[in-house]
């Protein structure tokens, strides 16, 4: 990591859902940092808390969910305790969001121009004509052909991939420093996925924006991200540069994840899988949450919770796997 202060710093974030049976802790001391111009991939199974982390950062946690502890800082300014109106002004302006399904994230009855211009004018002091010109520029930037014509079309007149480009243009409308992309490629065809990840990388490079890329797809992370954070049962269990984590995973869980990616080089009869399932929030085992599924678990793993190390390539495990590429 460079010496510049991180653009986004999440520090021991805790998110709790208040239920009839008492509070459920969905995020447990999640800490991460993203610098300007950097893409952090956040990866994990469904329910690991990766989308929830993104939702907490953009301040859209709905009750019964709430932030119960920790801090979120953007450019050094705390944003997790801002009043709702101040947080609203920040959303779209300094933090842009991209959601999973471009088919449902655009308003079906408004033209994409109307949606873009409204967002632009919410955050920037432009008149209608200037905002329209800017909307066309944004559409050009995300690679929509003939933007001066397409701007007056409705979402249903675009294909899935083109719609996700429009969603990205909307996320960029207020010139945000940070983009939280929640599964931006999951709903798309594989051939379109690469186009969207390339676009994200280009935006990150050209604008110097920080990108938090939430996905369950380790392949997308490997292609796109600079650093990666692996989440399991509401905690970050391993984080580090993509190269290091993918080539030499140190946590048994990450190792299992990497081994379950199909390889082009080696022909295998069946894919590797990790036995068992991630625990529900109501039944997180004491000690390391992964211990029931871990082959190398010891007595200590069942009692004591391992903390994330303070290293560039850090792991939260009592018995991390020694270096060396996985088989």
């Amino acid at each position: 990591m460079s010496g510049a202060p991180p653009l986004l710093a999440v520090d021991h974030l805790e998110v709790v859902f208040d239920t009839r049976h008492g509070p459920l802790r969905a995020l447990d001391h999640v800490s991460l940092e993203i610098s300007a111009g950097e893409i952090l991939g956040v990866v994990g199974e469904s329910g690991a808390g990766k989308s929830l982390t993104g939702t907490a950062i953009i301040g859209l946690l709905d009750p019964p969910g709430r932030i119960a502890g920790g801090e979120i800082r953007l450019n050094g300014q705390r944003i997790d305790n801002l009043p709702p109106e101040a947080m609203r002004k920040l959303r779209g302006k300094r933090i842009g969001a991209i959601f999973q399904d471009p088919l449902t994230s655009l308003h079906p009855m408004l033209t994409i121009g109307e949606q873009l211009i409204e967002t632009i004018r919410t955050h920037l002091p432009l008149d209608a004509a200037a905002a329209r010109a800017r909307a066309i520029d944004l559409l050009t930037e995300v690679g929509i052909p003939a933007p001066e014509v397409r701007i007056d079309h409705h979402p249903h007149q675009f294909s899935g991939g083109m719609r996700q480009r429009v969603v990205i243009a909307l996320a960029l409308a207020g010139e945000p420093d940070l983009i939280v992309a929640d599964e931006p490629t999951t709903a798309l065809d594989v051939s379109i996925q690469a186009q969207i990840t390339t676009l994200l990388k280009r935006i990150c490079r050209e604008r110097g924006a920080a990108v938090m890329l939430v996905t369950h797809d380790m392949g997308v992370i490997a292609e796109t991200a600079d650093r990666v954070a692996v989440m399991y049962a509401g905690r970050i269990i391993e984080t580090g540069p993509v190269e290091a984590v993918t080539r030499a995973p140190r946590h048994p869980y990450t190792r299992g994840l990497m081994a379950s990616i199909p390889s082009m080089r080696v022909r295998e009869a069946s894919l590797h899988q990790i036995d068992g399932a991630m625990p529900r929030l109501t039944a997180i085992p004491p000690g390391c949450a992964f211990n029931p599924r871990c082959l190398g678990a010891s007595a200590r793993c069942r009692v004591e919770k391992p903390m994330l190390e303070a290293l560039p390539h850090a792991v939260a495990c009592w018995h991390p796997v020694a270096g060396g590429p996985h088989g």
């Binding site: 609203r88 002004k89 959303r91 969001a97 449902t104 308003h107």
Partner: peptide, 22 residues
């Protein structure tokens, strides 16, 4: 509860616009 309202909120649009326009 729809996604496009969530996305409109994520873009920081004012409540009045989200409720009445969207």
């Amino acid at each position: 509860r729809t996604e496009f309202i969530r996305f409109a909120r994520a873009r920081g649009l004012p409540d009045g616009s989200i409720h009445f326009r969207h």
